[in-house]
Design a protein around this nucleic acid. Structure first.
Lengths: 193, 193
DNA sequence: TCGACATGTCAACAGGTGTTGGCCTACAGT
DNA sequence: ACTGTAGGCCAACACCTGTTGACATGTCGA
């Protein structure tokens, strides 16, 4: 054990660790779990593959470290009720646009069980509460949150992964205008069946 | 070439070919492109891996053959305009529920360029025209079709791949009740921005 | 009956994977 | 100044991948 007071003492290798993590996120995001090789990640970070093992144990743990993610969802309770859909939509698009991590998680989750489990936890732990605070009948919260995930992830999939041209072409305002009402209905609309 | 009249003569190996294709679809659907190995597919089909190569050339071509897919979209022009959303939603869910092929395509498309391209073609060639026939302004058709894809694929992703519990729990009627209006708005609603 | 050809099996290849252990080097604490 | 140790590199391992070619078997037409 190096440090002791409260935060672990800064290690000389922190720069390397960070470089590995950044490279890992990019590779996982671009290639998915299996095609993102440790050798490629190490090459991007300009270090030896064995260093990755030393610092992160194995590929699975490396991914777990790289896929740490916070949606940073805004508090929606203070927002006018009819605007929560647009607000949440805009936030999600912005979050997606500037961070590889969610991309890495999404691509990996399709073929890797652990990544899928983490995706479930992400939505349960972060989106769930925000939706629950908005919904009248608490029992409805999980379904509504799930439906929001449906549209949010579907958008990310078609725009960033499949790159369907018409979806790629939409600008931020258009995305909010089209998807906002959908999210709004899933959050606050009359329930279906 | 074997046959000549109009349909190719039935080969003795057709059963094997079909077994390979079935096994390939299941593996690609369950594991994605890279994790679905030719050896595993051959084992499922109870034949030697080299037979797969003989009949389909290589893995990429095998996938291309296995991912041949027809959405069998119904004609929506005869349907009352306010019901097209529910109708299309119900059809897509049914189609998804009973055929591995779309699953194989979806899982593979996330990490394989060729599969992604095929997914784009699928929507352009099959969903595009159906939507175009419904929309007044032809220029809007691609965007609307893309939005439908957004919600449809997002639902498939969260329900069948990520298995988000609340989404898995929905029964057919609930899916149509929740997603139908969304699809309806993307098809016939006022355009956003 | 015989031979051509389709069908199938077996073993191996070349390359890439995650992962490991040994070795060198340079800095930090004494 | 010295030494222990953390940081880093190299070579190798055991395994798995797609793919290939040589060989056996069976079937069908002439």
């Amino acid at each position: 054990m190096t440090g002791s007071t409260e935060t672990t003492k800064a290690r000389r290798s922190d720069a390397t660790r960070a470089a590995i993590l950044t490279a890992a996120r990019e590779r996982f995001a671009a290639d998915g779990y299996e095609r993102a090789t440790i050798r490629a990640i190490a090459a991007d970070a300009n270090i030896d593959p064995s260093m990755v093992m030393r610092y992160y144990g194995n590929k699975e743990k490396l991914f777990a470290a790289a896929a740490e993610f916070d949606l940073r969802l805004p508090e929606l309770t203070g927002v006018p009720r009819e605007e929560v859909g647009a607000r949440l939509t805009a936030h999600l698009v912005d979050r997606w646009e500037h961070d590889d991590t969610l991309m890495a998680l999404l691509r990996a989750a399709v073929t890797n069980q652990a990544a899928a489990e983490r995706m479930r936890q992400l939505f349960a732990a972060q989106l769930g509460p925000v939706v629950a605070a908005l919904v009248e009948d608490r029992a409805e919260a999980p379904v509504r949150a799930g439906l929001v995930a449906t549209q949010a992830l579907g958008f990310a999939l078609t725009r960033y992964v499949l790159c369907l041209p018409p979806v790629v072409a939409l600008d931020r305002a258009a995305v909010v205008a089209w998807l906002g009402p959908t999210i709004q209905r899933y959050l606050t609309g009359e329930r279906g069946e």
